[in-house]
Design a binder for these strands. Structure first.
Length: 553
RNA sequence: GCCGGAGUAGCUCAGGUGGUUAGAGCGUCGGAAUCAUAAUCCGCAGGUCGGGGGUUCAAGUCCCUCCUCCGGUACCA
């Protein structure tokens, strides 16, 4: 489905990053890089697109991290918000805004959202028994209680499940329950919460998802599994200090459940994006028009929230557009096992940026993106892709072309006066490649998009070999001029077509070609825009070789 | 346990509704070329598609079963 036919504008989100740790390559592969590539492609294609992301900063887990580290939740989120923002910028992620859920705008916006459902009478209150620590004066979330498993007798069973026998548990079933934070014994106490009637929306959600024939099967099947079990109403408040306070009376010590409030953060951040612009209401065009194409990028662990829970919230509110697609990725593991912040088994963006070119990182992830199944990141893979593909195929083509232009044509674009069949063929293939690559981007096939782009460079190298400009320069300089002109035009096309995945190299290439970044569009990738006689800048190495010693961890 | 996903060349991965000799990239090996970051181009080799059973003229693809890995399982996000 082409964007331009049905939609006037595109609204892209990447899953908000939970601000209790450093962002790692798993996040990049799952929800950030595909969105950034998609957005960059859309901008080049002239679509009206904005890209929203940010930090998710409330909830039990952050409060617990704060307790464990002996600092305030605010200190935790400040540390990781800015660190992660910086990491993303270092990797060239082109958010229109990367904000956070601890802003006043978000507080008001999520309270307003809650209030709308509340005023409609959709929410109801229910009282339930929970474990409460009198020592800490707090209710304990299931996973912060351990005790003896009633099924197998394992003494370290968690409140939500027993790791020993796999039984799903409720904390009230545990024998000898104790808090994982202080070790004291909690007591049973009643607490009243607001519930969102998710069960009422099952039919609408079911119809909605079945109508999405172009969604990935993993996402659709996952939702169908939930429907089969039957959706249950969900508590959307928590007894917690760290969160957005309930906007209703008599609710001290209660906050909005983070998974109710976090996706509203996409809306809040959009409001923030436009608040100081000429048209502060512009966010409404994106969120409240049916001709907006809303696309959520995320990892598979988030499907439930973006394909079921958040859409149901939006349906209940009635004023918002629903997602047009939820292209969820699987996970990118690290050398065979899962990346995890808590276990420290992860490649943090900050660390890898200190050593390697951001485009090398983007390319390595993009060419092995977990679109259909979990994939693995290997350091040896990063080295191989940098040296054998980026350096050898792309970098080398650009370099050998520029060296000719420098050496034999005074650093200018030589004239192309008469094309042979072989020249016309490669020029035509730019056209067909740029349209096939576009189609891959339109359909969220990022691995295919990138490998197809590299195939054009392979063809370009073949063209260079077959036309043998090193011979032409000796006996037919005009012929050599045609070849080098064509190769430079190809370089310009690469700057456009690789922009979504290799933005830094694209920029470098444009600088070498002496053209400005604003001047490029996807359509122009297939046009011969370089004028004969125009001056080139000195060539730079696009990808330096990575030595074996650099990847021995 | 239950729901969902995955298991395909040495490595990393593609393979709508079952259909001719199962694909790509990288790696290996052989050749061509020598402009270029020794970088390119061409070619060969390499797979009983996790195990077993079944349906069918025909199964990587559909059904059953088993094994392994991953996500979720509703108060972690």
């Amino acid at each position: 489905m082409e964007n331009s036919e049905k939609f006037k504008r595109i609204l892209v989100t990447s899953a908000l990053t939970y601000a209790n740790g450093e962002t790692h390559l798993g996040h990049i592969a799952g929800s950030i890089l595909p969105a950034d590539m998609y957005v960059r492609y859309c901008r080049l294609s002239g679509y009206d697109v904005i890209y929203i992301c940010g930090s998710d900063e409330y909830g039990t887990a952050i409060e617990m991290s704060a307790i464990k580290e002996g600092i305030s939740p605010k200190e935790i989120i400040d540390k990781y918000h800015f660190l992660n923002k910086q990491s993303y910028e270092g990797l060239g992620m082109s958010f229109d805004i990367y904000s956070r859920t601890s802003t006043d705008i978000h507080k008001k916006n999520s309270q307003d959202f809650f209030k709308v459902l509340y005023d409609k009478g959709l929410l109801y209150q229910k009282s339930e028994k929970q474990l409460y620590s009198e020592k800490e004066k707090r209710f304990l979330a299931d996973r912060f209680v351990i005790g003896t498993c009633p099924v197998c007798g394992y003494e370290e069973a968690r409140g939500d499940e027993c790791e020993n026998c796999g039984s799903a548990l409720s904390p009230l079933e545990l024998k000898n329950p104790r808090s994982t934070i202080t070790g004291d014994t909690p007591v049973v106490k009643e607490s009243t919460h607001y519930y969102f009637p998710l069960s009422k929306y099952q039919d609408s959600l079911d119809k909605w998802i079945i109508s999405k024939s172009d969604w990935k099967p993993n996402v659709v099947n996952y939702c169908k599994g939930w429907f089969k079990t039957g959706l249950q109403d969900r508590a959307i408040t928590r007894d917690l200090n760290w969160g957005v306070p309930l906007p209703v009376n008599n609710s001290e010590g209660k906050v909005i459940y983070v998974w109710f409030e976090a996706p509203i953060g996409y809306i809040s951040n959009t409001i923030e994006l436009f608040q100081n612009s000429k048209n502060p209401d512009k966010w409404k065009e994106y969120w409240q028009s049916n001709d907006t194409k809303l696309v959520h990028f995320l990892g598979k662990d988030n499907i439930i929230f973006h394909a079921i829970f958040f859409p149901a919230m939006l349906m209940a509110h009635e004023n918002y557009v629903l997602a047009e697609n939820v292209p969820a990725n699987e996970f990118m593991n690290l050398e065979g096992s899962k990346q995890s912040k808590s276990k420290g088994h992860a490649i943090y963006v900050k660390d890898v940026l200190e050593k390697f070119n951001p485009d090398t990182i983007r390319y390595t992830i993009a060419t092995n993106m977990p679109e259909n199944k979990d994939t693995d990141f290997y350091w040896s893979d990063l080295q191989a892709k940098n040296n054998n593909e980026l350096g050898a195929i792309l970098g080398n083509f650009v370099n050998r072309t520029f060296v000719f232009a420098q050496k034999y044509f005074e650093g200018t674009v030589p004239e192309a006066n008469e094309y042979l069949e072989i020249d016309k063929n490669i020029i035509n293939s730019i056209k067909s490649y740029s349209s096939s690559i576009a189609s891959y981007y339109e359909n969220y096939k990022f691995k295919d998009a990138v490998s197809e782009t590299m195939n054009l460079v392979r063809d370009a190298n073949k063209y260079f070999n077959d036309t043998e400009p090193w011979k032409a320069i000796k006996d037919d300089k005009a012929r050599c001029a045609v070849i080098i002109n064509t190769c430079l035009q190809l370089c310009r096309s690469f700057a456009v077509l690789f922009n979504p995945v290799l933005p830094f190299s694209s920029e470098k290439l444009l600088r070498m070609l002496n053209i400005s970044e604003e001047a490029i569009t996807w359509k122009s990738a297939a046009e011969l825009k370089l004028k004969a006689g125009s001056k080139l800048n000195n060539p730079e190495i696009l990808f330096r070789k990575i030595e074996d010693t650099e990847i021995d961890k």
